[in-house]
Amino acid sequence: MLFLLLTAAAIVWVRNLFAVVILSGVYSLLMAGTFTILDAVDVAFTEAAVGAGISTVLLLATLALVGQEDHGQHRRALGPIAIVALAGAMLIYAVPDMPRFGSPEAPIHVHVAPRYIEETPNAIGIPNVVTAVLADYRSFDTLGEVTVIFTAGIGVLLLLAGKRRKRK
């Protein structure tokens, strides 16, 4: 967890964009490890493949086209720091009201989740509850997710194809 913080801080300070991109890959991989510790193995798989893999490849491909150095001045304006500190302080103020970490009596664990966990083996017939919910109970939502990817793909193609046409 502390490594996560270190990596994120380094992303703020490092100027070379190549290093920033690699650091963001490291960050995603550390996050995937954290997800495994927190029992979210499916999420960890996805984060390692998508966050550490595909995102890094996309960022590197972009860097190849736009160059590596961050030339912008560090403005050190007080405005952004104040906004960030204020928002962070308010969120941390809310933390003590959260249920204790890992507590089985937290509201999130007693209401809807047990029903899914108990009925999945009989109703769906596969052992992995996350897959069952994703692909069966909420399959329309997953269809919507595929639509989002499709739209993003079309957007990227339109943006980049327009460039090629103009060059001719």
Binding site: E47, V50, Y116
Partner: peptide, 17 residues
């Protein structure tokens, strides 16, 4: 709890989009 896991799987994919 599996439900946050499902939500976040969707969110990761939207993030990369």
């Amino acid at each position: 709890n599996p439900l946050p896991h499902v939500l976040i799987l969707t969110a990761i994919v939207v993030a990369v989009a």
